[in-house]
């Protein structure tokens, strides 16, 4: 079987950052321009791209044998990402309040507000870098990929927060985040249902025969499940205008079926013995 070349993690980082930000901005700008909420699913697509990036970074860090630490790494990433995201969005809010970059771009959105997600991402990357530095040089963990990996998972977590916030609430300003995501308690599933697609793929697929394509396929599958959940949650925010949430849930479900089948296909292709039932295979002689 010919080995498929692994995708470099910087490529995935690029796809995650650029694709993620484009999707998040597109969702909010298109909705504001047309005065609808049909495009909130784009936020989830941005989050899925960021999940791919994060899942690969988790994979690279944990390949150094932190077997039981995979979920912990994901939780750490989301802890870092949450703080940075709140701070970044507050920064955008601050710019609007101080009338800096006050020109309206489209549909009443001010340019200052659009700085928010970018600031959140940058702050998350910086925070991840600092925490990675502490882990590597002060705690002396001596894991070669730790420094870059921490920076990446923190950034990915921040983008996942932003993406799913757009899916739940349709906007990324600080006030919406506080009123519609934190005060309703949706921050709890956002934290943990957002984190699972990032940490689950490698946690589920680890082992000597782990394969990047299969792991990332699982990441997409899990992220689509989260998309469906956040689509359901957004019904609470748009109770009178349920077209956007319905589009999100339906697209999420259909895409999830394909992703699950793709993962099953990858499992079959891997050459693992799949038996309908039966006794344990006989051990070979001399082993």
């Amino acid at each position: 079987m010919s080995e498929v070349k692994e995708i470099d993690w910087y490529t995935l980082a690029g796809a995650g950052i650029i694709g993620g930000l484009i999707c998040i901005y597109a969702a909010v700008i298109l909705d504001a321009a047309l005065g609808v909420n049909y495009f909130i699913f784009l936020g989830a697509i941005g989050a899925i791209l960021a999940t791919l990036w994060g899942a690969d970074a988790v994979r690279k860090i944990c390949k150094y044998g932190i077997g039981t630490g995979v979920p912990s790494i994901g939780m750490l990433a989301f802890g870092m990402g949450l703080l940075a995201t709140l701070l970044g969005l507050k920064f955008g809010d601050y710019l609007v309040a101080k009338n800096i970059l006050a020109m309206e771009v489209v549909g009443g959105i001010k340019a200052g507000l659009l700085v928010g997600p970018l600031a959140a991402l940058v702050m998350a990357l910086v925070q991840g870098f600092v925490i990675g530095f502490i882990a590597q040089n002060i705690l002396k963990m001596k894991i070669p990929t730790m420094q870059v990996g921490m920076t990446m998972i923190s950034g990915a977590a921040s983008l996942i927060y932003l993406g799913y916030t757009v899916t739940i609430a349709g906007a990324f300003d600080f006030g919406t985040l506080v009123n519609n995501v934190i005060n309703t308690g949706f921050i709890a599933p956002l934290f943990i249902v957002g984190a699972l697609p990032m940490l689950h793929p490698f946690n589920a697929c680890l082992g000597p025969d782990e394969n990047q394509r299969r792991t990332l396929t699982l990441g997409v599958e899990a992220a689509l499940m989260s998309t469906v959940i956040f689509g359901i949650l957004s019904f609470a925010i748009f109770p009178n205008d349920i077209i956007g949430p319905v589009i999100t849930v339906l697209l999420g479900l259909v895409a999830w079926v394909f992703a699950y089948l793709a993962y099953w296909q990858k499992v079959k292709e891997s050459g693992t013995i799949i038996l309908p039932t039966g006794l344990l295979p006989k051990k070979e002689e001399g082993q």
Binding site: G207, Y260, S270, I274, P276, T277, G278, P281
Partner: peptide, 20 residues
Amino acid sequence: TAYMGRLTGQKRFGQPIYID
């Protein structure tokens, strides 16, 4: 997915995935 993934990740040890 975790059951399938963990067993696929260590297929060289011959542990089959039992559908039942």
